[in-house]
Design a protein around this nucleic acid. Sequence first.
DNA 1: AACTCTTACTTGTATATACAATCTCACTTT
DNA 2: AAAGTGAGATTGTATATACAAGTAAGAGTT
Lengths: 236, 236
Amino acid sequence: MTQVKTAKYRVIKQHICEKIESGQWLEHSKVPSENELTEQFSVSRMTARRALQELTEQGLLVRSQGSGTFVANFKSQSSLLEIRNIADEIHDRGHQYHAQQLALKAVEVNEEVAILLALKAGDSAYYSSVLHFENNVPIQLEQRFVNPKLVANYLEQDFTQITPHAYLSSEAPLTEATHQVEAVLASENISQLLAISDITPCLQVKRRTWSSQGVVSLATLTSPGNKYRLGSHLIF
Amino acid sequence: MTQVKTAKYRVIKQHICEKIESGQWLEHSKVPSENELTEQFSVSRMTARRALQELTEQGLLVRSQGSGTFVANFKSQSSLLEIRNIADEIHDRGHQYHAQQLALKAVEVNEEVAILLALKAGDSAYYSSVLHFENNVPIQLEQRFVNPKLVANYLEQDFTQITPHAYLSSEAPLTEATHQVEAVLASENISQLLAISDITPCLQVKRRTWSSQGVVSLATLTSPGNKYRLGSHLIF
DNA sequence: AACTCTTACTTGTATATACAATCTCACTTT
DNA sequence: AAAGTGAGATTGTATATACAAGTAAGAGTT
């Protein structure tokens, strides 16, 4: 096990993030220029630039050619589309939750899944399929591929007792996630499981989650459009 | 009028986008490596790299150290995280944008809208209905109620020239926003506008935006599920 | 006082180079 | 046949440098 050295541009990003989050650098205040960071951290301008550039893309900074780099209108990122355990969500609504485990096995991944999970086509990954119920009505089908290198005992779990998300969080804390949200028509198979007609639109969220070790899992969450809704709250 | 020279990395981005959009490069197929692009376009590796890098951040490509760069899934994608101007979004994809203004008037609000806009039922608010096109295909219907106390000249705008979002941002900078995302079947009326069948699922985003003065507007954005997708990226 | 010009600073684009880390695949060894 | 090795390709990180382009502020002129 070799300790991976942290890249220099990441160190600078971290430093700037801390200044902003701790309130030492307020909104709209000027942050050090590329040349100043170059000196402070003894790096090349291109490396300092990369840190500022990526933070700008993430929305923490705003840059203006000729005048400088500034702290943006407050951090939006953190509390948007928060990833919640669906069981908690349902309990919080005062409703009854239970789950049905439809599949839990090792499978060979196709090319698409392989790329997204950072595996090779034909490699084996863990697969789970769980149907979540709210007050005995099916509310969400969760189909999930899990990176076997990062989560050892996935196949020994009982996902009627703990949700896959809760288990994975306990094994490998999330550091990052991407979502793709689409409106789709469910396949016949899925329509049947969700007890909906074949023309009911479904909200489909594809979520890819990372831990510090790499891509952990790839989940497809399909919910009837008339029974489920996503919310998010941004602060600028 | 000085003709601005297009940056080289943009030329390469454009080239790759075209290949993908025209279907010459299919999903998951390999795209030229940094070194190949370096030769093809007679640029340095860092410039070729920048093109690939930015397209990866935009979600068009997927990269894997050691194996190469590949075409990602190509559905249109926007971000929940950042509230973007749809015109910019479409332009950034290298596509042509135009809009059609279906309505722009003052209306009496019903109770639901009144509550959400912090007005009284029966008060008057501004209402706009704009259809956005990507390459002459309708991609999103935007129906928006605007708080007349905070935005004076809303009715005098021409929303084929500037999007409502862009205008509102210039008048009253956003400080906060909430979203609700649902999958729905469009009404007959809306199906017709979007040129879709009445069983095509639609992604519907309801967005409420605040400025420092209070609730600015209430927008309902309806897009065909097969042509539009939301994305978001979280870092913990 | 108002205007223009210059200058310094900052970010944007581009190149050339070097080495590290990772993956693939053919080849060799067992 | 299976396992291990190593070369080559590919992306990741980092540096040094150069010039372009936009901004702001001060100097100088009218």
